[in-house]
Write a protein that binds this DNA or RNA. Structure first.
Lengths: 237, 237
DNA sequence: CACGATTTGTACGTATGTATC
DNA sequence: AGATACATACGTACAAATCGT
């Protein structure tokens, strides 16, 4: 094995995901400190040989890291790792949501959802409220609880977040919803409880009622109960 | 102007930021719905002509969008916009933090910091507490309040978030800290109040005390007071 | 069903900036 | 200080997949 034996990536990668694979690899190397902050990545040519792909592919991978603010490049010098405090994106590595991670993520979501409900109660417009109620009705009339129903469920929470008037709430809630979507889906399909839909609708109704009454405390409390209930139904301890 | 008149980007871009600029442009087009979900982006060749750069640069830009889960590409077919629910990253467009956005971001941070303090009070280990106290001491002994002091300040909040034992809290708080860093820096440099450091240290001390006592309510409350105070000192209404 | 036009994926070559001797 | 090696930035050529005719 004197040289460049075929890459571990170029071959077993479906096709067209080479850059993604390499980006993941480099992210890992940076994440666990193998390439420390301030240090330089191997040169593009080195990486292209290591992975058995062209420099173009390597450059596309590095471009992703730059986009996340993980590295910066200077022509003639190289690509160096930037401090964590300058990272520009918050992202979850997709396939890594095991049970513990899901619980942790739900724990992050809870205070945000509560604050979201409180702010929505205080600030919502008539239009915001219509959107919330609409999502609730779509959920109620959904025939498919797993798919159409889930979408309406996520839409409900997204609509509440939008009613805060703070687009960061809306964006982040949409992000979290998407991240949890697959997990919720499988949890629902595995669940034997036939009353989940009715219970969920009832909990949502309480939230709507409180928001409508512009009662922030009640809205936050209703949201907390809903999340705790949903969390329990999804993954009983 | 029959064709390919020189790009608005390739020329006025410093150098080496062509892909970033194009990525931003495309993100905007997707964000405001100019290119709707499910629709296809212009072909790489078209984009390269429009922006006056090579396909390589366009591909690096698109690679970034793929990394964020904004688009997906299929060889021979094209690049299409994926639904918002499948986005893989939460990021702020960097240069867009005006006063209103900062306030909105602080509003997102508040409930998270409170929850962070509460969880830290409940779960912290001795090592976690040492890290928190260490950050506090570094802040106290910092000679330069704007730079070294700010770092210690952010480290304090990061240490509290880590003490939750939930790495999503730690990661997201680090992310938010980085995003707000520049704003806080300028706010401090413009501030005339000479007591800010002492007040901040005192507020932090209250938080530490509550965490130490494993009193979640007190920790959350102390954190709330701190954030409200800091917010007021930074941007009085 | 096949073929060609179109589009993305990959490889390679050139220009330009940086560091080092 | 100049030259030389090497790094990234950018451009071009070819391969593979898709889609419509």
């Amino acid at each position: 094995m004197t040289r460049g034996e075929t890459s571990p990536i170029a071959l077993l990668t479906p096709k067209g995901a080479a850059a993604e694979e390499i980006a993941r690899h480099l992210m890992m190397l940076i994440g666990n400190g193998t390439i420390a902050v301030g240090n330089k990545l191997p040169t593009e040519q080195t990486l292209s040989r290591q992975f058995g792909v062209s420099r173009t592919v390597v450059r596309e991978a590095i471009s992703r890291l730059k986009s996340d603010g993980l590295v910066q490049s200077r022509q003639g010098s190289g690509v160096s790792v930037v401090p964590a405090s300058l990272r520009k994106s918050f992202k979850l590595q997709d396939a890594a949501l095991d049970r513990r991670q899901v619980i942790a993520l739900l724990e992050l979501r809870q205070p945000l959802e509560m604050a979201s409900a409180r702010l929505a109660a205080a600030r919502h417009t008539a239009k915001d409220l219509r959107k919330i109620v609409d999502a609730q009705q779509r959920m109620q009339s959904s025939l498919d609880w797993s798919d159409e129903g889930l979408q309406a469920d996520l839409d409900f929470h997204h609509a509440v977040a939008k009613a805060t008037g703070n687009h960061f709430y809306a964006d982040f809630m949409a992000f979290l919803g998407g991240a949890l979507r697959a997990t919720i889906l499988t949890a629902r399909s595995e669940s034997k409880n036939p009353n989940i839909k009715a219970i969920t609708l009832q909990e949502h109704a309480k939230i709507i009622e409180a928001i409508k009454a512009r009662d922030a405390d009640a809205a936050g409390h209703a949201m907390l109960l809903h999340l705790q209930g949903a969390s329990f139904r999804m993954a009983p301890p």
